[in-house]
Simulated scan of single mutants.
Amino acid sequence: MRLMAMSAADFQAFAARSVAGYARDIARTYGLPDASAFTSASADFNELLEDGLETEGHYFYRLCIGDDVEVGSLWIGVVENPPLPTRLFVYDLEIDPAFRRQGLGRQALNAVETWAIERGIRRLELNVFSDNVAARTLYETSGMAACEITMGKDL
């Protein structure tokens, strides 16, 4: 698995997919209308990425195998918040549907771990929606464990 830096055009397409996917997750999880979920997802995305592709500490990659066959996308960011250790946060990791269930998610996580270690980062974190069983299984079987859990109840 190779991490290939996104171009400006790659980033535009990624941003649209990422916001749309996050909006679907928000709508499903919180029971929001699609338009409200999209507004919320867009606001979160834009707040984190004030300078888009050029936002300091954020990195965007196309996930490639073989002869540059693109199989997914990745957004990671270095988080520094002393006294906590510097950590690499996976904001978005997506394997394209046609390539899922082939071990590529695990390969992508291994590539992310290598990226972090090469830069002296020794902690990896991410968030996952609780109903995303496939992703949770991947993360758990890759050695990740819950360090915080947000719980909720509709009233």
Rank of each mutant, 00 (worst) to 15 (best):
S73K: 07
G143C: 09
I65Y: 01
F60T: 08
W75L: 04
G66H: 06
E56Q: 14
F45K: 03
T86C: 06
G120Y: 07
A43F: 02
E80A: 08
T86V: 12
D34M: 01
G66D: 09
L74T: 03
V128P: 02
T55A: 14
S42F: 01
V78P: 00
L74C: 06
T39Q: 15
T86D: 02
N46D: 15
L138S: 09
E140H: 10
E125L: 06
E50L: 10
S36Y: 01
R122K: 08
V78I: 15
L104N: 06
D34P: 04
R106Q: 13
N46M: 08
G120I: 04
N127K: 12
G105E: 05
G143L: 09
D34A: 15
L63V: 01
R106G: 13
L63F: 05
D68N: 14
T114V: 15
L124Y: 04
T141R: 15
I117D: 08
P82R: 10
V79S: 01
D44G: 03
I65D: 03
D34F: 00
A41M: 02
T39I: 07
G72R: 05
A41R: 01
E94M: 11
M144V: 01
I95V: 13
L63R: 05
L124P: 00
P97A: 12
P83H: 05
L93E: 08
V90R: 00
G105M: 05
F45W: 14
M144K: 05
H58N: 14
P82T: 08
I65T: 09
A35F: 01
R122E: 11
L49F: 07
S130D: 11
F89V: 08
C64T: 11
T141V: 10
D92T: 05
L32V: 01
Q102M: 12
A111P: 01
R101L: 04
A43D: 10
L84R: 13
S142N: 07
L32T: 03
G31K: 04
G57H: 08
P97C: 06
E113S: 05
T55L: 12
T55H: 11
D67S: 12
R87P: 00
L109T: 02
R101Y: 03
F129A: 13
E56H: 11
E125Q: 13
L138M: 10
S130Y: 14
L93M: 12
L88F: 01
R101N: 13
P97E: 15
A135G: 15
N81M: 10
E54H: 14
E50Y: 00
Y139C: 09
D92Y: 11
T114D: 14
I117Y: 09
G52D: 06
T141M: 11
L49A: 08
A134I: 13
N127Q: 13
G72S: 07
E140S: 10
N110W: 03
T29A: 15
Y30C: 09
A98E: 14
L109Y: 08
Y139F: 13
V79C: 01
P33S: 11
